[in-house]
Write a protein that binds this DNA or RNA. Structure first.
Lengths: 205, 205
DNA sequence: GAGCTACGCGACGGTAGCGTAGCGTTAAAT
DNA sequence: ATTTAACGCTACGCTACCGTCGCGTAGCTC
């Protein structure tokens, strides 16, 4: 089975064996189309047959690279974990505002906003998916966590601040608007979040 | 087709026509089993065949009452819109704390916590589902909205406060923990939310 | 108790998906 | 240029689901 080799290649860069061009091409093509389908139809709406149809890669070939549909899906999900830029130049307040503005922006445009609910749904029943989702969430929350830690280090906000809690307080309301109440993210809301967080974290309490 | 009659009966209570016992029983049993399956397998995991199997009601009979799978699903979803108790006795702070404690509790136990992501996912692609979801969210957010309005009326918090924004700020972080970061809802988090909201809504700014 | 009507049952046609098998072809590696 | 490995293609068996049809039966209403 091809998986071990591929995994090894992915994780260990030391492995300098040349990889067959065809393999590389197949993998990237399939993953790309899987990602597109994922965004379009959600986690449970992706079928191998459809991927084969669109990508031009034969279904049998796909199964030569991924042992099962779920594995391919999980692999494609990793493409969602883009590295976000982390502002570190300003004060806690300006950094936070910038991050949240970015998030609000991405919530309305980016593909992952359409996919995430389907992943959350799958997570409720499949532990492997849940693991990936938790990982992704860690990545997406990283900017907030980072600027909190930096601000603590600078002595700008209260020491001992739980960055995860701040992430929940900052991102939660935005996510709520996008997926639960399905309302537009008001700039006023964003402003309130930033202002209140700053106040609660800088006051001596 | 039986649907018009049933719908009419459902909406107009004035219609005192006796309803066939068999019809009533079929409807309730099917809905109950649909609900169970919904909670167990999510919106997209429910099949008519499985409902028929479990409920003992013939598939043909189910189709005599609901024209399509989606309609049945939507009907079953309405069972999720339970009426929540709304505390109105205390101060804004105590009321809010109680509501959020309830929500946090329900997030960890109740069935809808397992279903909601699947509904959100379906909402991304099906406008009818989205409509139902928005309605459900309105119901679930009602307690928060209510105590905000009451507190405004009492002059306890700033007039002109946007109850929807407060709902997002209060519920968002809890939802975030349950579905996105998949972390336990820390009592400290709950405390921070309540305290900060109260401060930001009572201060003269 | 007669008549109506909802129900159960078995079967059907059609679609879609998963994952596998065999075989011939092509193109990369050396 | 030869070898070797990946690929495409067709077809398959299997399962699951949707929604429908016809017919006989059981049970409710009046």
């Amino acid at each position: 089975m091809a998986i071990p080799k591929l995994t090894a290649k992915g994780t260990s860069v030391a492995n300098k064996e040349r990889v067959d061009t065809r393999v590389e091409r197949t993998r990237t093509t399939v993953l790309a189309h899987t990602y597109d389908l994922l965004v379009q139809d959600g986690f449970s709406g992706v079928s191998i047959d459809e991927i084969a149809r669109r990508s031009g890669v034969a279904k049998t070939t796909i199964y030569r690279h991924w042992p099962t549909r779920t594995r391919l899906l999980l692999d494609a999900c990793s493409k969602l974990g883009v590295n976000l830029e982390i502002p570190t130049q300003g004060t806690f307040e300006t950094d936070l505002r910038q991050v949240l503005t970015d998030v609000a922006q991405r919530l309305e445009n980016a593909g992952w906003a359409k996919v995430l609910p389907s992943i959350m749904d799958a997570s409720e029943r499949d532990p492997d998916v849940a693991k990936v989702q938790t990982l992704l969430q860690t990545i997406w929350a990283a900017p907030v966590v980072r600027i909190v830690e930096d601000a603590v280090a600078r002595g700008e906000i209260r020491p001992g601040t739980d960055a995860d809690v701040v992430a929940a307080e900052a991102l939660g309301p935005l996510y709520y608007r996008r997926w639960f109440s399905r309302q537009h993210i008001d700039p006023a809301l964003l402003d309130r979040i930033v202002t209140n967080l700053c106040r609660s974290l800088t006051d001596a309490r």
